[in-house]
């Protein structure tokens, strides 16, 4: 992994611009296509053409998927000058992921937020995780502070409530999507096919947790901070104009690793695991702790629990 503190010799922004200009020159005759598809992440005419006709992820043959992946990697190279590896690791058998957060332990540092931003190649104006500073005596989200900016946290009389995609078992966003660009995978992860989404944002109105984020413009992604280990349904660089969301770090968790937010949490407030494994930590939490879920009354069956020590 890159050390984000490393400073290059030249300001990378200059490099990025130069790379862009070189890419533009290379594209040559496809300049027209550039102008038309630029903001949508297209590149050469042939790639733009292939992108346009690319099928839904679940409908593609293996050959088509590998072609699409080659294109994704080529686009990332052209656009960011970075060699990424995009895989399509499928869900493991007998695994459904769940998450539990110890509200007593969360101290509002937002380390998870920024680990997620780096791991998942988020546009630097997007954060999948929202930590809400709440009054001790209230569970009313409306009176929480999303933008707390104190010198020191935690503050007396406050507790901190991290929110992200709850990966509902009955997800209203999946129901809402008119083109089935978002669906629940066998391991319970609600994913988005960024190459199929039409950007209508109906899923965003349907989500009770404000978990979905739209790429209003082209993602602002510093090339030198790109995480190159990516997944088709996960953290590969996204085009503009599509919706994205937390995917439980599908590129990591399907290989047995922890999601980046769990790894970054310095207080151990985050517990991730397989809900189908009776010996997993999350099952212990669900069986032995006083747990609650947010907006449970809406019937979305989130696979994301909260609990307190006392």
């Amino acid at each position: 992994m890159k050390n984000p503190d490393e400073k290059g010799a030249a300001p990378p922004g200059v490099n990025a611009r130069r790379r862009f200009l070189q890419g533009l020159a290379l594209a040559g005759g496809a300049g027209a296509a550039h102008a038309a598809f630029g903001a949508w992440g297209g590149s050469t005419l042939s790639d733009a053409f292939a992108d346009f006709f690319q099928q839904h992820y679940q409908r593609m043959t293996e050959a088509e998927i590998s072609e699409a992946i080659t294109r994704i990697e080529r686009k990332a190279k052209r656009r960011y000058g970075v060699d990424i590896q995009c895989d399509t690791t499928p869900a493991q058998q007998g695994v459904v992921f769940g998450y539990a957060i110890n509200v007593s332990k969360c101290r509002g540092y937002r380390d998870c937020v920024h680990a997620c931003v780096r791991e998942n190649n988020l546009s630097r104006d997007t954060q999948y995780i929202r930590v809400i500073e709440m009054d001790r005596d209230s569970t009313d989200l409306r009176h929480g502070d999303h933008y707390y900016d104190h010198e020191q946290v935690p503050l007396d009389g406050k507790y901190y409530l991290p929110m992200q995609c709850m990966h509902c078992d009955n997800p209203p966003c999946v129901k809402a999507c008119p083109v089935e660009a978002t669906w629940t995978e066998p391991d319970g992860i609600v994913v988005v096919d960024y190459d199929w989404c039409i950007g209508c944002r109906y899923c965003m109105t349907a989500c009770p947790y404000q978990a979905r984020h739209f790429n209003w413009g082209s993602p602002a992604l510093p090339p030198e901070e790109i995480n190159t280990a990516t997944h088709y349904l996960g953290n590969r660089p996204r085009p503009a104009g599509v919706v994205e969301k937390c995917h439980f770090c599908v590129q990591r968790t399907r290989k047995g690793r922890q999601p980046a937010c769990q790894e970054a949490c310095p207080t151990g407030a985050r517990i991730f695991g397989n809900l189908l494994d009776p010996d997993s930590e999350i099952r212990y939490v669900l069986a032995n702790k006083a747990i609650f879920r947010l907006k449970e009354d809406l019937g979305t069956e989130p696979k994301f629990w909260y609990f307190r020590d006392k």
Partner: peptide, 12 residues
Amino acid sequence: VDLGRPDRFWHL
């Protein structure tokens, strides 16, 4: 005009 990706209109 509200669509983020009008080029993918055919998906509908």
